[in-house]
Design a protein around this nucleic acid. Structure first.
Lengths: 250, 250
DNA sequence: CGCAAGATTGACGGAGTTCAAGCCGAGTGG
DNA sequence: CCACTCGGCTTGAACTCCGTCAATCTTGCG
């Protein structure tokens, strides 16, 4: 088995260096402190990363589908991934957008309960689930970290339920913009203007709205000078305080 | 400090036997296999349960509020608890109803990110968070179990996002009825007719609907012979297959 | 340049909310 | 034992926000 999945490699150069042959790539990982690998020290990293391979997915490619056997878990190291669930008639709920540092593939059942697809070209560290689980016995700190990560995700999920169940379209969009600004800032990425590479349709499926409503609401926020839409999927937040008031329904 | 919280004890008899003095109550716990205590063997149970106290909450009493220091975690052993978040103007999202076997209080921050209130009289096992965390080093299997529980909650949260963002009122109510039927069955409780002790308002706040819409939709399902509303908050499901079709939008 | 996919805008309709009025049932006190 | 009351539930009528359908505009790309 090759050290990374060539089926999806857009640019092979991006995927070097090869783990287990050259230097451990984790040493240079800019987001390690955010991931489940955070508690590993320099001596532990090589052993831990031996079971890891790296994969690159082109924009628009599926990483896995709901119902697939859940035998891989991932760390996102660059790019944007969307995670979603479908109803039989095609209605879709995007349950999250993952960016560098996020964990993908947490599952307790045999199969994934959701699908994952690359929104932009993305790089991921991939772990065979069985091997990772076996390794957790030797690295209890990683297990602790996974629990922490899961708790964070759970808190985010509850916040999203509040948004989906009780916020208006305008409040949803304002919350969405601030969510991304904060997440980017935590990772040292530009937090204003923010880069939103996903489509209006994806945003709608995340917020429980239609494409049209997302578009109209962006226009509305633009008209009231709250934001500016720049080319390349960039959105400038002109009045963060006011956006926060809107997001909280104040 | 007394072995259980007398402030909320409705009937002191219910709270016996006292942990650490008399027999370990966990031995008789009917839902232990569902809780974080599941992996503990009979010799470990007494040590583990030494840090535990039991509390009884009357219907309608607050267990903790969003923003309170999160220094306790709980296992629900009987009754129904609702967990919710509020917007400044009072809009509410119930993020979950907890029943026997459910875990309450998972938090990574200093403070709870949500409030919890007893819907019916409820009994809980309470653990000081710091002591529990300290104990996890000696009981790695419990930590593993907590991760499992958190994963389950996360999967449920994603399912709920799909419901909130993309389902119609009728689909939401059908999903809600089936959710409770399945959860009751897993615990060996009657799964049809099901007992729904929470108010229409609580159900609405869980499903992202108003009281009126919940009521109207119940009436509608009743008219089409899908359910029967019995006294005492009981709901009889007359055609589970059809309800499942409705719940999935088929 | 020309095309296709996505984004925006408009007009209209409908599912669900809001506001308001009755209804029911459990607890209470005369 | 029964009228009274109060909170929650149900029903009705009007409204509104957002979805639907459709046309146009923009943008990235071969």
């Amino acid at each position: 088995m090759p050290p990374f999945d060539v089926r999806f490699v857009r640019n092979l150069e991006q995927a070097r260096p090869r783990p287990g042959r050259e230097a451990v790539p984790c040493n240079a990982c800019a987001v390690r402190h955010l991931t489940v690998c955070a508690p590993l020290n320099p001596t532990e990293l090589p052993e831990f990363s031996r079971i890891m391979t790296r994969a690159v997915f082109e924009a628009g490619t599926r990483i896995f589908d709901e119902g697939d056997p859940a035998d891989q878990v991932f760390n996102v190291t660059s790019g944007v991934i969307k995670v979603y669930k479908l109803l039989p008639d095609g209605r879709r709920q995007v349950t999250g957008f993952l960016i560098a540092g996020d964990f993908l593939g947490l599952a307790n059942e045999e199969d994934y309960a959701y699908s994952a697809e690359a929104v932009t070209a993305a790089r991921l560290c991939r772990f065979p689930r069985k091997k990772l689980e076996a390794m957790l016995d030797s690295f209890p700190a990683v297990e602790r970290q996974m629990l922490l990560v899961a708790s964070h995700e759970l808190a985010a999920a509850q916040e999203q339920m509040l948004l989906l169940g009780r916020k208006t379209a305008k409040e949803k969009i304002a919350s969405f913009l601030l969510l991304f600004s904060v997440r980017y800032r935590k990772r040292g990425l530009p937090d204003n203007p923010i880069h939103l590479p996903m489509s209006r349709n994806d945003i709608g499926d995340f917020l429980g709205l239609t494409t049209e409503t997302v578009s109209r609401t962006f226009t509305q926020l633009k008209s009231s000078q709250m934001i500016r839409l720049l080319p390349g999927g960039l959105v400038e937040l002109n009045d963060v305080d006011h956006l926060e008031d809107i997001a909280e329904g104040r």
